[in-house]
Design a protein around this nucleic acid. Sequence first.
DNA 1: AGACTTTTAAATGTCAGACAAATAAAATGT
DNA 2: ACATTTTATTTGTCTGACATTTAAAAGTCT
Lengths: 248, 248
Amino acid sequence: MKIDPNSSADLSAQIAQAIKDAIVEGRLIVDERLPSEAELADQFQVSRPTVREALKRLAAQSLIRTQRGAFGGAFVNRISFEDAYSQQITTSTLLLSMNAVSFDTACEARFALERACAPLSAQRRSPDHLATMRAEIVRQSQPGLSDESFCASDVTFHRALVDGAGNPVLSYQLAGAVEAMQPLMNMITFTARSREVIVGLHTRIADAIEARDAAVADAALVELTTYTMTLKDSVMAARAAARGTLSG
Amino acid sequence: MKIDPNSSADLSAQIAQAIKDAIVEGRLIVDERLPSEAELADQFQVSRPTVREALKRLAAQSLIRTQRGAFGGAFVNRISFEDAYSQQITTSTLLLSMNAVSFDTACEARFALERACAPLSAQRRSPDHLATMRAEIVRQSQPGLSDESFCASDVTFHRALVDGAGNPVLSYQLAGAVEAMQPLMNMITFTARSREVIVGLHTRIADAIEARDAAVADAALVELTTYTMTLKDSVMAARAAARGTLSG
DNA sequence: AGACTTTTAAATGTCAGACAAATAAAATGT
DNA sequence: ACATTTTATTTGTCTGACATTTAAAAGTCT
C-alpha cells in the first residue's frame, strides 16, 4: 500500500483509499486487525492525526470498526444489511431532499421495484409475511387511527410484501426509496384522506399474494401506482393554488 | 446542535451525527458554509483534531466538501448521482465479497431490477440508447474479441438498456448489483464460452426495445436469467469437481 | 492447584500548540 | 484601469503529551 505525497489530494483521503482498496480486493479480510495507528503512521510516513482522519473516513463507511485498549485497534468490518440499509436510506433521502431526484422519479423507481418483488413474494411468502399484511390491513381499516399510524402501517405492509420475496438485496434497495419518500407520502395521505381506496388495493394485493397469483398482485400494484401519482398531483396543485392566493 | 460528553460514543462520531442530522433535516442547506474548524471546536467544546475527525467522517459520505484558503471551509455538498453510484457499488461489492449475499441472491435482484426497467426502456429509450445496444451487439459478435472486452461490452449493453428507462434511481441501484457481480460473471463467460446464445438474446432484447414491445423484452430477459443461472451452476460444479480431484 | 485480585502494557481517544500551504479579498503600485 | 503584492483566514499536517480502556500477565490468597 503506497501513497503519493505529491498528489493534490489529502493524505488522509489517499490513505483511506489505499486501505479501502486493500479491503475490496481481499488483501485485508474480515475481522483482520489493521496495524496500530502508530505503525500505520510509520508505514505511510505521516503523523498519527492524519492516519486517524483516514481511519475515521473508513469507519464512516462501516468498512472498519475500532476497539480501545490493549489488543484493540481497527478491524475490517463484515458489512451487515443494517449498514447497507442505513446507507441506502441516507443517500436516497439526501437525493430527494436536495432535489437531485424528483418525487415522480423516486415514486416510479419505488413501484417498479415493488412490482419486481411481487411475483417472487407471491411464490415464496411465508405465512408470517401474509399475517403481517393482513394485520396491517385490519389496522388501516380502523376509523380512529391517526394519520401517522396509518402511514406507519402502510410502510409495514409494503415492507412485508417486499420481504416476502426473500431477497435481502431487493429489500434494502427498496428501503431507501420508501423511507426517503415518507414525508411526501405522509402529506398525501394526510390531505387526501383516501384510506378506503388504499385499503381496498392492499386487500387485493394480499389476496393475490395469498393465492400466489402474481398477475393480480401486479395489476393491483399498477393501480396503486397510478392512484398515488394522481393524489400527488392534486396535492401539488392544491399547494400551488395556496401559493397563488398568498401572493395574489 | 448539542452533544453529550458523557456518552460512550466517540466525540467525533457524535459531532458528525449532529451535523448530519442538521443536513438531513434541512437546517443546513446545500452549499451553505459550516463554521470554521476552530469555531466548531469552540461550539462543541472539543479540540480541533476531534472536529476534523468528525468532518472527515462526513466527507467520506459525500455530505460535505472542504476548500482550503481564506473564505474556504466545509460546505454542504449537493449529493450527485456519481456519489450515489460509487457508494452503491462499494456496498454491493462488499456484501458479495464478504459472503453476506450469495451470488444467486445478487443475480436474482439484478435481473428483477432489469426486468423492472425493461418496460420503461421500451417506452422511452432514445435512438441513442438503441444505437449503443446495437453497437455492443456488433462488437460482441466479432470472433477475435477478448474475454475481457466481451464482458465490458456486456456491461455497456445492459447499462444502455437500463439507462433507456430514464430513471436515474433505477440506474444507480442496478449499477451496484452489476458491478459487484462482475468478477463472477467474467468467470462464467470465460469458461463457458457461450457467446452465441448471449448475443442472440441481446439481439432479441434490442429488437423488442426498438419495437417498444415490453413483453418480448421481458421474455428474453427471463431466458437470459435462466441461462446465466445455468451457466453459473455448471461453473460451480466444475469448480467443485476440480477441488475433489485435488483433495482425492 | 485454582480462583480471585492487582498490575501492567498497549492501544485508541483527546487535547494543546505550532507551522505549512492555499486562497481570495484588500491594498498597493504602475 | 489593470496588474501586482500583501494580508488575513482557513484547512492540512506535525509533534508531543495525557487520559481512558482493555485484556493479558503477574501476583495473592485459599
